[in-house]
């Protein structure tokens, strides 16, 4: 029980008659990398929004680090060590890259002063490889740079759990490889990571466990190899052809 960092119990979210998330239950263990996959509109981002308090759950309870956080607000989630990156990056555009990260350190990471927050921000920028851009406005970064900035900002909040919402969407192959290395390095620090993705390559190589969401319901929870064999998952998401290819890759 104690090694569970996040636990969802029958969590639902309705928008009027639309059940975006229905009765989802799962738990994340400390230090795990878990992938959350599902076709477009499956409710992945809604689920993350509910966990971080952006939207309130219609039913069910969420526990984080031994605390009932079902009714928390986003800023409380941030201070408790529940960080997330956005599918559509959300920088403070007119601030410098350094100030963006310092904001995370000061408010989410509970640094005592702006000077300390700035110092902490520098080390995080170095870690994600953006140190050279520290004094440029965030709006001057490329998409891949902005995603790195999001990562640095989240790390500055000293997260226990990091939720990466499509952190690789829109990146090219070499940029994705760079991002994967970075995510592994973050996991090595003991941060639990939930990767929300639809790029199979990313989740298959990163995650120790996969959760599959379809029409707001959790239809599978298991190790990646089993997941691609699961007929319901193949039906819902992968399509028979891709599942076959993955299987051939693994056996051959």
């Amino acid at each position: 029980m104690s090694d569970k960092i996040l636990e969802l119990d029958q969590v639902s979210k309705n928008f009027g008659g639309n059940h975006a998330v229905s009765a989802v239950s799962f738990a994340l263990k400390e230090g795990e990398i878990v992938g959350l996959i599902g076709p477009n509109g499956a409710g992945k981002t809604t689920l993350v929004n509910v966990i971080t308090g952006v939207q309130r759950a219609s039913a069910g309870r969420i526990h984080f680090d031994g605390l009932d956080v079902t009714d928390q607000r986003p800023f409380q989630a941030a201070r408790r060590g529940l960080a997330r990156t956005f599918q559509i990056v959300q920088p403070f555009p007119a601030m410098t890259v350094l100030e963006n990260v310092a904001a995370g350190a000061l408010f989410g990471g509970a640094q005592a002063s702006r000077a300390e927050a700035t110092a902490a921000a520098r080390t995080h920028l170095e870690f994600v490889g953006l140190a050279a851009f520290a004094d440029r406005p965030a709006s001057a970064l490329t998409l891949s740079g902005r995603k790195r900035l999001e990562l640095a900002k989240s790390l500055a909040m000293k997260p226990k759990l990091l939720m990466l919402d499509e952190v690789n969407a829109g990146l090219n192959t070499s940029e994705i490889d760079g991002a994967l290395t970075l995510i592994r390095k973050i996991a090595d620090r003991g941060v639990t990571i939930l990767v929300i993705e639809h790029l199979m390559k990313v989740v298959m190589s990163l995650a120790q466990r996969l959760l599959v969401l379809h029409h707001g319901q959790l239809i599978a929870d298991g190790v990646p190899r089993e997941i691609v064999d699961d007929p319901r998952v193949i039906e819902a998401y992968l399509g028979g052809k891709f599942a076959k290819r993955v299987k051939e890759m693994q056996h051959g």
Partner: peptide, 19 residues
């Protein structure tokens, strides 16, 4: 600093822990 974050992007400010 927090107010400037709100001015730039209120949702993002909320997510980095600004009340």
């Amino acid at each position: 600093f927090g107010l400037r974050c709100i001015q730039q992007n209120e949702d993002a400010a909320d997510m980095v822990g600004v009340d």
